[in-house]
Write a protein that binds this DNA or RNA. Structure first.
Length: 563
RNA sequence: GCGCCUGUAGCUCAGGGGAUAGAGCAACGGACUUCUAAUCCGUUGGUCGCACGUUCGAAUCGUGCCAGGCGCGCCA
């Protein structure tokens, strides 16, 4: 049974029975956990919402609705209309109806949670919607930096979250392995290679000057010596392009895996060019009147769908722009049958949204089905000062360096814990600290404490009751009730966070669960309590452990048994 | 100039039409012969950037202004 659903239904029936509302359309019943405990277990604002259509003041309306519900609560529990779990409905404030439930509902709730185990929180709220989440998609021209780190952490957490909430999620990395940047990579490696072999070279103006390029060139030189100097320069560049692409891609994959991030699909931009998808897409859009030629170039008429200006897709030199490939890519995404496509981009790309949405609309797809989640910028702070450059490389701090510095769990948690709309001030000292000020360790510590309880229970030969067999009525402390209530919110929390594409809610939620657990732990002994209380608390502890594991798994943060 | 994001406690941020605006850190005072003190309990701390409007009700919605970040290529 789900008390919340039953209660919402009963409220709806009660409101529908009010004379002044006869025939009126009732809004969906909003049930929330009130901000303060004195306001009961749940509250609804329905009377305030109905005040206008009913032409009555909200408190009078609330009294009428609460009266009907209290009458049903007073019925013998065998009556069909009885609400046996309801203790009282009270009107408060400007017209809220607060519901106070009998303790039984918490016991039933804990039994549900215990029975679900680590599956607690799963729901079908996403209804199996086929969703693609594309993120990171960094150019394979160098190492990932901290900005990519936020994308990687948030993207993977969002995918995990949506899976738990019942979406059918596929994650994807778009490899920008065509066009200028990759040519530039090849030219940079080429220059470094020739340098290493003693040639006087002019380094390409827009070349990549990172150390990693020299490393790549050195590996080639170590392996092949001067052999490539004999080759035709264009041919050599082509070979270096392949070598560098493979190496950079492997490094990206390695960095991401070390960060707990994997992708279902690695999609190469090149394949779009090779398979003629770009040409096909342009032809299609020209025929449908969404593209036109002017000044020797081919343009997308994106202004027809709200963009500021039309955009070039094929330059006057015949080379497609990045947008051309992106249009073909999005056509491919939707052709693969995704109901919804989510792109996670850095704030520096937000200006690109309107043209891609326009392209999606021009292709005949609903632009609403393309969601672009913008991540604001990341600033690193150390000793209270902004860290601009990496000391080691003189460039932006790489993700690998960050992981080495603060650890994978702290890095992931810190990236995820803020709203994507907010800039992220990443405090390196805080992330590194192994003290109570660090929220990651605080949560992990709660999990480790529970694991420790179970270790000791086992040593003491205590049997942990099977779900459904624990005497959970033995739980009478307020700290226990608070914990059960909080655990009970988890499925809604997951569903809402997924719907809002807001994984930071899960970070916050996990922290709240940990806080209530630590409080409980300091107040209530588990091992050594009277047998039925001990058994019931073991059941509760297991429920907390499983919920924390689930939440941490969404975040991609480890749930250690020992710390 | 235009567009997007942000402005809430000393600091970092939640909350995004409803009740007395929350959390962590910092500051201050307490709790370890007991399952990990990486913990807990308590206290202090707010003109929700400013103004006007919409509403029974605004931190939340609208408009204007101020401040910060990011964009505004036949770059990606």
């Amino acid at each position: 049974m789900n008390v919340k659903v039953l209660l919402a239904g009963a409220i709806h029936e009660a409101a529908a029975g009010i004379e002044a509302l006869a025939g009126a359309e009732l809004p969906a019943v909003m049930l929330e956990v009130p901000p303060q405990k004195e306001f009961g277990d749940f509250a609804t604002n329905i009377a305030m919402q109905l005040a206008r259509p009913a032409r009555q003041n909200p408190r009078a309306l609330a009294d009428a609705i609460a009266g009907r519900l209290n009458a049903r609560a007073a019925l013998d529990k065998h009556e069909p209309a009885a609400l046996p779990w309801l203790k009282e409905a009270k009107v408060a404030g400007p017209g809220f109806i607060n519901f106070y439930l009998k303790p039984d509902w918490l016991y039933a709730l804990l039994a549900d949670i215990a029975a679900a185990g680590e599956a607690w929180g799963r729901s079908d709220s996403g209804r199996g919607e086929k969703v693609q989440v594309e993120f990171v998609s960094a150019n394979p021209t160098g190492p990932l930096h901290v900005g990519h780190g936020r994308g990687a952490a948030v993207g993977s957490a969002l995918a995990n979250l949506m899976r738990v909430a019942g979406y059918d999620v596929s994650t994807e990395f778009y490899i920008n392995d065509a066009g200028n940047q990759i040519d530039c990579l090849a030219a940079s490696v080429d220059a470094r290679y020739r340098e290493l072999l003693g040639q006087q070279v002019e380094f390409p103006e827009d070349g990549y000057r990172g150390r990693d390029i020299i490393d790549t060139a050195r590996r080639i030189a170590d392996q092949a010596g001067a052999r490539y100097l004999l080759m035709d320069p264009a041919e050599r560049l082509a070979v270096f392009k392949e070598l560098a692409r493979e190496e950079k891609l492997a490094l990206l994959r390695e960095d991401l895996e070390a960060f707990g991030v994997t992708f279902d699909v690695w999609f190469s931009e090149r394949t779009l060019h090779a398979a003629g998808a770009i040409g096909d897409t342009c032809r299609q859009l020209k025929e449908s009147g969404h593209m036109y030629e002017q000044d020797g170039a081919l343009w997308l008429k994106s202004t027809a769908y709200g963009d500021d200006k039309d955009r070039v897709v094929i330059r006057d030199n015949g080379v497609p722009t990045y947008l051309a490939a992106d249009i073909a890519y999005h056509r491919d995404k939707f052709a693969r049958g995704f109901d919804r496509v989510i792109n996670i981009w850095g704030a520096d790309h937000h200006g690109y949204i309107s043209r891609v949405k326009a392209a999606v609309a021009a292709l005949g797809y609903d632009p609403e089905h393309l969601e672009v989640l913008i991540l604001q910028m990341v600033n690193l702070f150390q000793h209270g000062e902004l860290v601009k450059m990496s000391k080691r490389t003189g460039q932006g701090v790489t993700l690998a360096e960050l992981i080495e510095e603060v650890g994978r769990d702290a890095a992931r948690f810190f990236f995820i814990m803020r709203s994507t709309d907010s800039q992220l001030d990443f405090d390196l000292d805080l992330a590194k600290s192994r003290t109570n000020e660090n929220p990651v360790f605080y949560i992990q510590y709660a999990h480790a404490r529970i694991a420790s309880i179970f270790r000791q229970a086992e040593e003491a030969g205590l049997t942990v009751p099977a779900p459904g067999e624990a005497p959970i009525e033995a739980l009478t402390e307020e700290a226990e009730a608070d914990l059960i209530k909080k655990l009970g919110e988890y499925p809604d929390e997951v569903a809402a966070a997924a719907r809002e594409r807001a994984p930071h809610h899960i970070a916050r939620y996990a922290h709240e669960v940990a806080a209530l657990f630590h409080s409980f732990y300091n107040q209530c002994r588990v091992i050594g309590a009277p047998p039925d209380v001990q058994a019931a608390r073991l059941t509760l502890a297991a429920a907390v452990r499983d919920t924390l594991r689930s939440a941490l798994a969404i975040l991609g943060v480890a749930a250690p048994d020992k710390m």
